[in-house]
Every structure is written in C-alpha cells, then in structure tokens.
C-alpha cells in the first residue's frame, strides 16, 4: 500500500493531489512505526508528517502554483536507469544484513542493553525513549533543537516574520481563499469542538512524556497544529491577534535558552553540562525535574517554530 501510494505520487503532475497522498503516506508510515513497537515515533510522524509538513507544502503550493510540467522523455529515462542500478546495489547489500527482528543483531548489542536494563535505575522515567532522548543523549537533542531553531531563523530571514508589512503584497490565488472556510458550518463547528481538546491534549503529551509515549517534540507540534487549525478556519488575522508573530518570534529562542540554562545550572552545581543528577540533592529528583524542564524547552521551541513558519508561508500567499 505504501509502495502504491508512492508510485501514485511519482506519476502525478497535479501537485495538490500529490501533497494529499504525501500526507496519506505519512499516516501509513506512522501506522507501520506503531506495529514496529515505535510508539513515540509513530506519534511524531502522525503529528508532523500528516499534519504540519502537509500544511507547509500546501501553503507553499498556494504561492508557486499547483501543477508541474509534463516531463520530457529524456528526463525520465536516465534517472530510471540510475535508480534501478542503485536499488539493485542496495538490495545486494541487504543480503548481508541481520534478519528483521533478530535479537542478536549488532544494533541491539552496543549501548541498547544498558538503556534497557539500567535506565529505570539511573534516570527514572518508565518511558525509555524519553530517558535516552533527554538524559543519555541530551547533547544530541540539544543539537537537534538547535537545528530546528536555525531552520526557523533561515525561514524568518527568507520570508519575513509573518507580518503583513514584510514581503510583497500579492492577490490571493483563486480557490485558495482561506477566509471562506469560516462560512462552512461543518468545518467551523468541528474546529470549535476540536481546538480546545487538542490544546489540552498537547499539554498532557508534554507533561506525561516520562510515563507514556510523548514529550516536547510531539507536544509542540500538536499545540502548533491546533493554532494552525484555528488560523485555517478563522483566517490568519485573528490568529495573529492572539499570537503576534513579532512576539512569537522570541519563543524559539526562549525554549532553547531554557534547555541551555538547565545544562548550565547543572554545571554550576558541580556536574557536567546537562547532568541533571547534579541539579538536586537526590539524583532521581534532579533527573526528573531536569527532564521536565528541557522537555518544556523543546516543546516551546518546536511549537513556536511551527506556528511561525506557518504564518510566514501563508502571509506570503495573501
């Protein structure tokens, strides 16, 4: 099914449908992650792939036009040969790989046993993914948050902060009149019903990430998707009244700083950077509050980045 969807995307010149299939593809793959026991990943993919990235691409398409030209035959032939060759090489390479689900594969014998066996003692949260993400690989995650922040700065520089003054004024393309969605009763009622629970759910995901699947990344995207839904139904302007883009632009930095400050406090208290055990007298409490704080930082950064990017992209299309 996944393969069929992808081939449909390859064929389609009509980009609107390609993007819709892209969202469907993301949803399918999140189902696959679910069956492969990666609940956190499935969660993220469903929120990000099927939600945020589809909307971003749609917003960009509203600006650049929605059909791609027919390909010239010589542009399809050469890539096909290259792709087949690379694919064949890769398939040959898989013959050496450990079989799917094999418990003695090299992946499972390096650091994973320590994470699985000792994270309950050393870090605390029952959700091992959270302990690895926030504690064992805290540097990594800090870097990732930094990348998200940097990408946000890039979008901001390229497109402006989503304020009406920045950028070129442009008449809305036909059929993409976002404002008109307000008139559709069903959409409006459903959105009214959904937005508040989605916001609350994002907070639950944020604070409950230690125990179940969830955490800052997912919560941030879910929070942002509630705001984006509001902006889609009621128009950008009311949404920007609630969250003025100029002020919102500070929040990614605040989130990242919160993360860094937790690390620095741990250093001042005599531990290493991001060594939460040093935060409090009891290392377990320290780990717990440290993880909560940095997850909050991640959540703020991600949510603010997503909303800001959406504002920037959609302001351009108005």
């Amino acid at each position: 099914m996944l393969v069929a969807t992808v081939f449909a995307i390859v064929k389609l010149d009509h980009l609107m449908s390609a993007v819709m299939l892209m969202g469907f593809f993301s949803l399918l793959s999140s189902g696959i992650f679910m069956t492969l026991d990666a609940v956190d990943v499935a969660f993220t993919e469903a929120a990000v792939g099927a939600g945020a990235s589809t909307i971003f691409i749609l917003a960009a398409l509203a600006i650049v036009g929605r059909t791609s030209k027919k390909k010239r035959p010589e542009k399809t032939f050469a890539p096909l040969i290259i792709v087949t060759c690379i694919g064949a090489i890769l398939v040959y390479a898989t013959l050496d790989m450990p079989y799917f689900g094999a418990p003695d594969a090299p992946v499972h014998t390096h650091v994973a046993p320590r994470y699985l066996l000792e994270s309950g003692e050393e870090v605390g949260p029952p959700n091992i993914v959270t302990s690895v993400l926030a504690s064992y690989r805290g540097y990594d995650t800090f870097g990732e948050a930094g990348v998200v922040f940097t990408a946000f700065i890039g979008v901001l520089l390229l497109l402006g902060a989503g304020t009406r003054k920045s950028g070129i004024e442009r008449s809305a393309p036909p059929n993409v009149n976002v404002e008109s969605m307000r008139q559709t009763v069903v959409l409006r009622e459903v959105a009214d019903l959904l937005i508040a629970p989605v916001l609350i759910f994002s907070l639950y995901v944020q604070w409950h990430g230690d125990f179940g699947p969830g955490g800052g990344f997912q919560a941030g995207v879910i929070f942002a998707s509630a705001i984006i839904l509001y902006a889609l139904i009621y128009g950008i302007v009311p949404a920007q009244k609630v969250l003025p883009p100029r002020k919102l632009a500070y929040f990614p930095a605040i989130g990242l700083l919160l993360y860094a400050i937790v690390g620095v406090i741990a250093m001042l208290k005599g531990g290493n950077f991001l060594d939460y055990g040093a935060l409090m007298a009891d290392p377990h409490d320290g780990q717990h509050y440290g993880i909560l704080a940095i997850e909050l930082g991640i959540g703020i950064t991600v949510a603010a980045v997503m909303i800001n990017i959406f504002f920037s992209l959609s302001e351009r299309s108005l």
Binding site: V41, T44, E45, V48, G49, A52, S53, F56, I57, E144, V147, V148, A151, F152, G154, V155, L158, F217, G220, V221, V302, V305, M306, I309, L313
Partner: peptide, 10 residues
C-alpha cells in the same frame, strides 16, 4: 522527523 519538517520548511 521534527528536524526534517523544519528543513522541509526551509
């Protein structure tokens, strides 16, 4: 995934 969506937006 989250970094991916940020770079996609870029």
């Amino acid at each position: 995934i989250v970094v991916g969506v940020a770079t996609t937006a870029l």
